[in-house]
Design a binder for these strands. Structure first.
Lengths: 339, 339
DNA sequence: ACGCTGGGCTAAATCGATATAGCAACTGTT
DNA sequence: AACAGTTGCTATATCGATTTAGCCCAGCGT
């Protein structure tokens, strides 16, 4: 009911709570507790199935063994898969995860940070939204490690783990060009954040390097908050508005999904009438007919790196920010067959 | 750095911490604190952006405003989407979510329950694994509410929110039969748990009611732990082993996904050579060519109900278990076109 | 003038674990 | 025998908030 406390053990063993604490924290030797007493306490503790109250411990030590995870959207396959990897990895170090989705909304993100903070998490893994620079900087002053995920702020020195978005998008654009597509559009999210900027820049550079026509009209930026219907409507409007468009690159997995839906509702044949590629992989892309070419992020690697960075900082805080950029992989499928 | 504590406010206001606590907890009237003092404290608190330390509060009050969520697999779209709904709903009540995936593994589930327990969560939302009955019963004795999700234990009286799995599978089976399919197989998970049993039973009943041949050979049970390759291999083996099989029902979304992959790698035409339906909806099913018929669970409704039940129990614990069974919807698509 | 009531506030205990300081008993040294 | 050093353990304060008990003063009645 109330749970076994250190006092209960102390009483049963006929020693003081202090002694129990020492033994149970492996400081028996250091604190010169005799083998006898030590063993007796251990035995009683296991018999009673004692588990320290993490609140009390956290209150006293300032360590909660909990990390706060802010993703953009836990229902998005990319973030959910990543969350799982991180949960597993964190668990190996004895950490639990408290999470929340930002919906790419700054206010929600601020609220979440606040909550995580006064829940005393030991560290943060944050998918930042725009305008969150100051909050991140403030957070750093709490001396709790913060690792940014998926994107970062160029002017803020912080730890982060991201993929090379520029390169990913560049490769996708180059690939489409190499396949013979001539007029390629890009659908992205209205966002000045680095990851979207890099994807757009990378793609643009590819167009340029391949001497393909690429005007602003070939770029469609849509707000993250749109609903399903509106995304589809906007994408259709965009695709039909450009003369001779023969391929399109979607800058995120959900855009890719909406894009496929839109293209099909236009009655266009993917891979024949229009080439398609998307950022991020997804079961849907793999099994679609035709299968969709994509830029896959190394999810397991990202997750592991994040936790590794975080654990390093938790154990030996360093001055230098750890900034890891991983390579995404271009997976060529039928949607970008040569014309 | 250290955070603002109630003492800091007390000092600034020239009153005792007690008074501050009263005011900030809205007990000013009740505790007869004067308007003057009350306002002054409020002002200082907002100026200092005071946020109570949840650990200290939790330690004292026994309430952490945190709920523990155990899903089968956060990377599974169904659970991830559900998690998001629940996170949102919980947030409305001021609760945060601490989560973990069980991987349908009893030991992992036990470990998670343990962790959640000594982190003093106020309530639990649990996707139980097999053999978890006792742990659930023990949990109930801690007087913290527990709501089971997706499945339950028939012999354990507990709160739960599930869908009518029998009916969902029955409808899918009936639909396939009505479309003219004659020999239908089912691929499910090796599990005695109620949700899988109900799906199998519902499907079996449909076969019987439609006077279709249905032998044990038409049932394939696969262990949850298999990897991608093995799932595909097993499903292919099963599909090719049955003479005249003309349709198949997959009892979970991931089985459906593996199933589609398998069928296609066999070179069979879905909806022409073989009818297909799956439990759970998924973007992949909606956008597949042909689109896949499925039994969709009302995710938002499930999530809302779960949190509603949990909040009711947190605020006014009742003796009677709340057991909610929601109706899934059959979504007919091209994969089950009439033969 | 004395007791009583109620208004306005605070001291101190408490939640459970940990960290610090230190006490008692014994051993060894010269 | 006196002192230092070690061994083995404990008392107490602490983390930050809440809660209980209760203090002090003013006003009121008699």
């Amino acid at each position: 009911m109330k749970g076994i406390s250190i006092k209960d053990i102390a009483k049963q063993a006929g020693v003081s709570p202090t002694t129990v604490s020492f033994v149970l924290n492996g400081k028996a030797k250091e604190k010169r507790i005799s083998e006898q007493v030590s063993k007796k306490i251990q035995k009683i503790a296991t018999r009673l199935k004692y588990k320290p109250n993490q609140l009390a411990r956290g209150l006293r030590t300032g360590k909660t063994k909990t990390i706060g995870l802010m993703v953009e959207d836990i229902a998005n396959n990319f973030f959910a898969s990543l969350a799982k990897v991180m949960e597993d990895e964190a668990d190996k170090h004895g950490y639990k995860v408290l999470y929340g989705s930002t919906e790419d909304n700054t206010e929600k993100a601020r609220g979440l940070l606040e909550v995580l903070k006064y829940r005393q998490v030991d560290g943060y893994i944050v998918t930042p939204t725009k305008n969150l620079e100051k909050d991140i900087e403030l957070l750093k002053e709490t001396a709790k490690p913060v690792v940014l995920l998926d994107r970062y702020f160029p002017h803020v020195s912080s730890h982060y783990v991201v993929v090379d978005n520029y390169r990913g998008a560049y490769n996708a654009g180059s690939h489409l060009a190499a396949q013979g597509y001539k007029k390629i559009g890009i659908v992205t999210i209205t966002s000045d954040q680095i990851q979207m900027k890099d994807r757009l820049d990378g793609f643009t550079a590819a167009m340029k390097d391949h001497h393909l026509p690429f005007s602003k009209a070939q770029i469609k930026k849509l707000p993250f908050e749109l609903d399903h219907e509106s995304f589809n409507a906007e994408i259709k409007k965009f695709l039909t508005s450009i003369k001779d468009l023969d391929a399109v690159f979607f800058a995120t997995n959900y855009l890719g999904i909406y894009g496929i839906e839109s293209i099909r509702s236009l009655g266009w044949q993917i891979g024949k009438q229009i080439g398609v590629a998307s950022f991020d992989d997804h079961d849907l892309f793999r099994l679609h007919s035709p299968a969709i070419t994509c830029v896959a992020q190394p999810i397991t690697e990202i997750g592991r790196n994040i936790i590794e960075v975080l654990m390093k900082e938790l154990n030996h805080p360093s001055a230098a920010p750890q900034q890891i950029v991983l390579e995404p992989a271009l997976i060529v499928r039928e949607s970008s067959m040569p014309l």
